[in-house]
Design a protein around this nucleic acid. Structure first.
Lengths: 210, 210
DNA sequence: CAAATACGTTACGGATCGTTTCGGATTTCT
DNA sequence: AGAAATCCGAAACGATCCGTAACGTATTTG
């Protein structure tokens, strides 16, 4: 979540156990995130206004602004909830198997669910909202990269690829190619595309690397 | 340009030589594009309004709307003029040299000039403007890809890489990795990054490919 | 009960959108 | 010369959404 620190008292830091006045409505949180998710799926981030979210959630605008400072951060919260669980860490025993499985899962998520438009909408919004850009890195990109680094490290431990591999570059190639096609839509993300991306990268790093 | 077809008569198709009424002011075109370029460099696409462009160019809003249907298409015209000439087709004699040179030119353009924010702003805008998305593909992406395909074809002709290489996938890896870092800013685009991207891709396709 | 905080409603001023209307300028066609 | 077509800049329009503020009410702690 992205809850603001309330006015005077707050959360865990203070010695006093409970904050002072009326607590935030948990149900409002839920209603807002549900409405956001619905509207994002229906019309996309750009075409969704805070006013609409408030109306559909049955809450006042104030209640939203009290919790989130921007539309993008609200959408990010709604997105992360759905996205996290769709990107498991594969463990097939070979790097090729892991990479294929991971890329398949990503492509499936962005092409067969509402995740695709949500993802592109958030990346677009992040281009003119530095705070969202940072939050995207912290809450989506880095967790995913960390997960995939594990796959590479296991491959190094198995001796499949040399330890000298620049894992960051590999991750950029891996996600970059797919994201590129998603954002610009010049070519479809077929199974063949997935296989060839993995093939080229694998062939590129299983040889001796500087 | 993106000029609309005027009301009744028009351009080259008609047998009649000249269109009927007062011709479009060439100076207005120039002033609008110059003002757009300035504002894009100063504040970015998102923070620039058509009204501002009109004010700075010293023309009426009508005059802009008569020529361009959206802010994005106007910005694209301004962008393309500057971008095209910064991306020459290298010919160093080796694929490695060509790829390094091309990626260096791209990175230089987006990190050392106003092209970077313009590019990210346009890609962002294209996420919720299908017409701009198509125009971006036609006027920026495909010309660049075509240019780079030449480099790959020359390498095939020289026998550096097999003819079976999936050139589209190579291009997606090549641009995707760089665009990924540009859009999310998680890591800098150093010379080392450039070199390693080219190394991995080259090593990945100089081997025998399916 | 008092203090503090959250709630939903309503209203506000401001920005920008894309369109329309206006009087005037410029060009071609008859 | 005059009519018709098109463009020009200026101004105004209704609409949407922004983010904030006021209000009276609800809920919780002390």
């Amino acid at each position: 979540m992205n809850a603001e620190i309330p006015g005077g008292a707050a959360g865990a830091g203070s010695g006093t156990g409970a904050p002072r006045g009326r607590p935030r409505s948990v149900e409002a949180d839920r209603a807002i995130l549900t409405a956001t998710l619905e509207l994002l799926a229906e019309r996309g981030l750009d075409a969704t206004s805070i006013e609409e979210v408030a109306a559909r959630a049955g809450v006042g605008k104030t209640t939203i602004y009290r919790r989130w400072t921007s539309k993008g951060l609200l959408a990010l919260d709604a997105f992360v909830i759905s996205f996290r669980e769709e990107q498991p860490l594969p463990d097939t025993g070979t790097l090729r198997g892991d990479l294929l499985s991971a890329l398949h899962a990503w492509v499936r998520a962005v092409t067969q669910t509402a995740m695709g438009p949500m993802l592109t909408g958030l990346i677009a919004e992040a281009q003119h909202d530095p705070e969202l850009r940072g939050a995207w890195r912290d809450r989506v990109l880095e967790p995913l990269r960390t997960q995939h680094r594990v796959m590479l490290d296991r491959a190094i431990a198995r001796g499949e690829i040399p330890a000298s591999v620049d894992r960051d570059v590999v991750l950029d190639l891996f996600f970059g190619a797919a994201e590129h096609r998603l954002l610009l839509g010049h070519l479809p993300m077929t199974g063949e595309f997935i296989a060839r991306v993995v093939d080229v990268i694998l062939a590129g790093i299983t040889r001796t690397q500087t």
